[in-house]
Write a protein that binds this DNA or RNA. Sequence first.
DNA 1: GTATGTAGAATTGTCTACAAATACCACTTA
DNA 2: TAAGTGGTATTTGTAGACAATTCTACATAC
Lengths: 252, 252
Amino acid sequence: MAQHVSPAGAPAVFRVPRASTVDLIARELRNAIYSGALGVGTQLGEIEIAQQLGVSRSPLREAAQRLVQEGLLTATPGRGLRISIIEGKQINDLYSARKAVESEAIRLLIENGDPDAMATVESAYEKLVIASQGRDPRTIGDSDLDFHWALVDASGSQRLRRYMSTLVLETRIASFSVSQGYVVRRNIAESHDTILAAIRAGDVEAAVAAVRALLDKAVARLTGRDSEDFDVETVEEPHHTGAIALEPITQR
Amino acid sequence: MAQHVSPAGAPAVFRVPRASTVDLIARELRNAIYSGALGVGTQLGEIEIAQQLGVSRSPLREAAQRLVQEGLLTATPGRGLRISIIEGKQINDLYSARKAVESEAIRLLIENGDPDAMATVESAYEKLVIASQGRDPRTIGDSDLDFHWALVDASGSQRLRRYMSTLVLETRIASFSVSQGYVVRRNIAESHDTILAAIRAGDVEAAVAAVRALLDKAVARLTGRDSEDFDVETVEEPHHTGAIALEPITQR
DNA sequence: GTATGTAGAATTGTCTACAAATACCACTTA
DNA sequence: TAAGTGGTATTTGTAGACAATTCTACATAC
């Protein structure tokens, strides 16, 4: 995922915003969810996680509340935290949000007309093409999400970016939740080419329509309403070995 | 703001999710921001707030992290928490997000065709009309935001609702940040009538376009690029008396 | 008179300990 | 044997205490 970029015209020297411990923990938790190290529905014991991260329970709990706010974790009083499950109607809801965010992102991307931003999108697309030529569905799925992320990142909107970073994770959770596997389409590159072509042409409506269609297809696939599309491949998620391993927080 | 509604078809009996202390604190903080009790840019001392709320620092800090994730609070290591300031380019960003969310909400609202949902929107509109006939700009501003909230709430989308609840607060913060006053248009009802008419007619594109136009106008007003529109009124925000008062958390 | 360095106070960040709620398991009983 | 019940153990929720960082004020040097 791309980094933040200093806006032009801003002062040359910023107050260095060194990341707080809570930031680092939250990031680590998100990584763990994305990678699948923390499986869907997993109840997470605070002392265990805290020990693995090399921190106390307090900052861990604070970081957890951030993910709760995002909807990635579900907190039930007296019962602690578990990774949210996203299935059923939530799938539709998730993709509604994605349609909202990605549509607006495309609009901004085209309006801004920033060549650098377009370049990163093109770059993400190329990686997607290369990945789709390979045979590893996992890699394809990753580069698919990366592309959509790049799209929103290139919009330059801080809020859309924030929303999308969560939505990416939720999409990941959803694919874990639905099948306990991982479904991707093999011919994924063509449909994305349509989007990119429209963006290049500066045709907002066409690009938006293309993304919406793409996402609608994804919903149909995930909710099992699409029995005709055989060009998919299911990959089993590696079984969780019980012992989940998180990297300790460094930098202090 | 309207309350959450049980989605149809959900099990009749839920595991009663009694609100956790963190929930209550977070809600109280949001209320304080919305009401202006916690002014923009205010540094909040943890011990003081915790005492006023009648809780310890631990749950307060956890609740605060939720608002940090929302972007309502800004946390700087070693320097604690302060209410975020929203001005300049952030205004554009904020309204981009609103466009994204509200556009999609309208789309869903029309697609769903739920009479009850429409009724709540109509109700919010009526209140807006009544308020706009009065002379209190503060009331008008409130009912304006309430209407937009009702729109998104009626979409039935959990995620859009979550986004919007934050965006409403941010909009409020923005109007506090820009002028240290509160700007509203007097003839606000007509423009909203356009939206509602399009929704009633089931015309998605027209409704979406109307909302986008409305929001664009708001941006222009807030960023001061709209010197021609004289039909506005500025209200001074009541001076903060230094002593901020928060209601203690009850229910245990 | 301005700027720099230092000491003190206050506030935040983290940890440990205690209280309360929940889950699990054995036991009893129909 | 199955269901209900009670007790125990584990986990979470909260509070208070300690450590570290930052801000403010004052003194000193240029």
